[in-house]
């Protein structure tokens, strides 16, 4: 039994590696209202990129463009390209389901499937994408995904309980485990800790540290300290009154926080506005 788990463990881990995501001149609209203008950003493999900026500057919209969630809103439109390992995810030949499988997402509000058990929540992505796994593989995958999300020890004895019975922080880590179970190359996180208490926030941040070896992470956060703690690269978004949002400055996190080139970045990271 242990042997089976170990082999599948190694096999699955073998092909898990991050992908490089590159946005080229991305613009976005809601109806006639332009919310993003000409945003270009490279998010290198196996690094954590933080998107920071005040509310309404388009960073969440940008994040949702990266895995084609943007177009779920009826009036939403966009221009530009998003390349995953050099291929445009918006190209006509690309299947949207495959793209979203490769680029996972964790949302602001924890959203486990309430009718499913903890274990079923973890493997929901496999079921939804029609991926068949054997029973032992499934068990190994549940353990590995929950371990990577830092939740295994807390829930290993109650995998059959409904996911909704967990605390908010545990639910969010369950959602991370669920996203990791489909082996994405990129994981997008939209303010994953804004609904969590400080202890849960720390656990999620630890999780981010541990998984970035295998997954490229892009995280939107309002919390400057969090951006400084978890990211290696940072992009500062800003939308000045009446104009669409865009990137003011991007670069290594250390440089953005300690030696920003743009005075607006300096004002923001030092808490003078926003």
């Amino acid at each position: 039994m242990t042997a089976t788990i170990d082999t599948s463990f190694n096999q699955s881990q073998g092909h898990t590696s991050g992908g490089t995501l590159e946005a080229r001149q991305v613009s976005a609209w809601f109806g006639s209202n332009k919310v993003l203008e000409q945003v270009s950003l490279t998010m290198p493999a196996n690094t954590v990129t933080a998107l920071i900026g005040p509310s309404g500057c388009g960073k969440s919209t940008f994040l949702r463009i990266l895995n084609r969630m943007h177009e779920l809103i009826g009036s939403a439109q966009l221009n530009g390209e998003v390349l995953l390992d050099g291929q445009d995810i918006y190209a006509s030949g690309h299947r949207i389901t495959e793209t979203r499988k490769r680029i996972g997402m964790v949302f602001q509000k924890p959203n486990p499937f309430p009718a499913m058990s903890i274990a079923d929540n973890v493997t929901a992505g496999l079921k939804l994408t029609g991926t068949k796994v054997s029973r032992s593989e499934r068990e190994a995958l549940i353990e590995r995904s929950l371990s990577r999300a830092g939740l295994w020890k807390e829930v290993k004895d109650r995998l059959r309980e409904p996911g909704a019975a967990l605390s908010g922080g545990q639910q969010q880590r369950l959602c991370i485990a669920r996203s990791l179970a489909v082996e994405p190359e990129v994981l997008l996180m939209d303010e994953p800790c804004s609904a969590l208490d400080p202890t849960s926030t720390r656990r999620v941040e630890e999780t981010i540290h541990e998984i970035r070896e295998q997954v490229t992470i892009v995280i939107v956060t309002h919390n400057m300290q969090q951006a400084a703690r978890v990211s290696q690269q940072c992009a500062f978004f800003l939308a000045e009154l009446g104009t669409p949002g865009g990137i003011v400055e991007s670069g290594a996190t250390e440089q953005i926080f300690n030696d920003p080139r743009d005075p607006r970045t300096a004002d923001y990271v030092n808490g003078r506005f926003g």
Partner: peptide, 27 residues
């Protein structure tokens, strides 16, 4: 049916029908 759960299913790579089956119908 909660938008958060719908998006969760779609973001995992589900088809629309898969989302309906896992989120909308149980709800």
């Amino acid at each position: 049916a909660p938008a958060g759960e719908r998006e969760a299913a779609l973001a995992l790579g589900s088809t629309r029908w898969g989302m309906v089956r896992t989120v909308v119908l149980p709800f």
